[in-house]
């Protein structure tokens, strides 16, 4: 049985090359020849990153790597990972969010798919052309809108969110002053050549990007027990852990390369400065909790899961 796995990322990019492709090979081997998972990288089955979930719903692809942030409103509870000062690393974040899913705390869209992995990226920090040290420096600056979760905080800081900038357009937007800063991590900075256009990097965990590997539930149900077992063997917590560690490692390596090649000042905040930012951005957390059913309970559960995962790693 052929399973089509769509990735909007080019075949040589980190996640597709080092995580998804080996996953497909492992599953194929474990199924004893029953499954043939084929990777369609670089958007060869659907080039719009925002349409990846629709590909699985429509049956164009059987499995896809989905970034729910591109379609605000879907997999909404996962946006908890976008809150600042919560996810310290992809490893802990992915571990924690998978635990949440496993305990049945994430509902809605999560129940309609076979989830092979529920993950978090490494935390995003603030990459900027202008020097930003304190929240007050943000006033009047254009910032790439990182998704609805942080909009309230950006507004409160007096900064202007700019939407519609895709990752490949990031460097152009930075160099033209369309935006003066963006929340991102060094993996993306390297891939999309943002390094040459930025001068400062404020190193604080300002929220991660939730990601999913989604499989069509009907397709999964129709597979033989042996095929299901082959998929299950490499899915769930195993997948999320592998993903998180690999993501963190790639970001760390990219960070060294980018900093060596470009003139970028990394600002490491002290405790007072961190406190200032925590206070300034707290509004996004308050808003998130108020905007979700059981918001406080979800927040507490996720914070506890992060603490547990951080201790374990």
């Amino acid at each position: 049985e052929i399973l089509r796995f769509s990735s909007f990322e080019p075949p040589v990019a980190h996640v597709t090359k080092n995580i998804l492709t080996p996953w497909a090979e492992n599953v194929n081997a474990a199924s004893g020849g029953e499954l043939d998972v084929q990777i369609f990288p670089g958007g060869t089955l659907g080039r719009n990153p925002a349409q990846q979930l629709k590909l699985v719903e429509d049956g164009v692809a059987d499995i896809a790597w989905v970034i729910p942030g591109y379609t605000p409103g879907r997999f909404d509870q996962g946006t908890i990972g976008e809150l600042p000062f919560l996810v310290p690393s992809a490893t802990a974040g992915s571990d924690a969010i998978w635990s949440m899913y496993e305990q049945g705390l994430l509902g809605g869209d999560y129940e309609n798919f076979k989830l092979i992995g529920v993950m978090m990226s490494s935390p995003n920090a603030l990459a900027s052309a202008a020097e930003i040290r304190n929240p007050a420096d943000m006033k009047g600056l254009n910032l790439r809108a990182p998704g609805p979760t942080m909009l309230g905080a950006i507004d409160a800081l007096g900064a202007v969110p700019v939407g519609g900038i895709t990752a490949p357009g990031l460097a152009e937007a930075m160099s033209r002053g369309l935006i003066s800063g963006t929340f991102t991590q060094f993996g993306a900075i390297e891939t999309f050549r943002v390094g040459e256009t930025m001068s400062y990097y404020l190193d604080m965990p300002l929220g991660a990007t939730p990601m999913l590997i989604v499989m069509n539930q009907t397709k999964y149900n129709g597979l033989s027990d042996e095929a299901k077992a082959a998929i299950d063997q490499y899915s769930g917590r195993v997948f999320s852990d592998t993903f998180g560690q690999s993501f963190d490692q790639n970001v760390a390596e990219a960070r060294e390369r980018v900093l060596a090649a470009n003139d970028i000042t990394v600002i490491e905040p002290d405790d007072a400065m961190t406190k200032e930012w925590e206070d300034a951005l707290a509004v996004s957390t308050t808003e998130w909790i108020a905007g979700h059913d059981n918001g406080q309970a979800l927040y507490d559960a996720f914070a506890a899961a992060i603490a547990k995962a951080s201790a374990a790693n």
Binding site: T71, G73, A145, P148, L151, G163
Partner: peptide, 10 residues
């Protein structure tokens, strides 16, 4: 049904 919205203006 999914309530899709634009990014900034909502």
């Amino acid at each position: 049904v999914n309530g899709d919205r634009t990014w900034v203006l909502g």
